[in-house]
């Protein structure tokens, strides 16, 4: 399993649109991708669940990737967070 920490820079936090794009992106990989804020963990493929985390600007999340294509998925997630959030 691979993990990285990310502090959200976007003014609105993880709002609807990036959450949607994230879910789309996460569906491209076989690995199980999760996002954790405090002690709540949700699957990255689930738009409404990601939104329900209510991640605001300046808050930290932990992104975990586990599965057969975790190298590729990990890299893709890192790039996605940096570019979109």
């Amino acid at each position: 399993m691979k993990q990285f920490h990310f502090t959200v820079q976007d003014e609105l936090g993880i709002h609807a649109r990036p959450a949607g794009l994230l879910a789309k992106e996460a569906k491209l990989y076989k690995s199980k991708i999760t996002i954790t804020k405090n002690d709540r963990t949700v699957e990255a493929t689930k738009l409404m669940m990601i939104m329900s985390l209510g991640v605001k600007k300046g808050e930290e999340v932990v992104v975990s990737v586990e599965g057969e294509d975790e190298e590729k998925a990990f890299e893709a997630m890192e790039t996605f967070f940096k570019e979109n959030l």
């Binding site: 609807a16 649109r17 949607g20 789309k24 699957e43 493929t45 689930k46 738009l47 409404m48 669940m49």
Partner: peptide
């Protein structure tokens, strides 16, 4: 317009 993209994603959301 982006909101309709979000709506489409919501309609397809797994949990929903």
């Amino acid at each position: 317009a982006a909101i309709f993209e979000v709506h489409m994603m919501m309609v397809e959301d797994d949990d929903y």
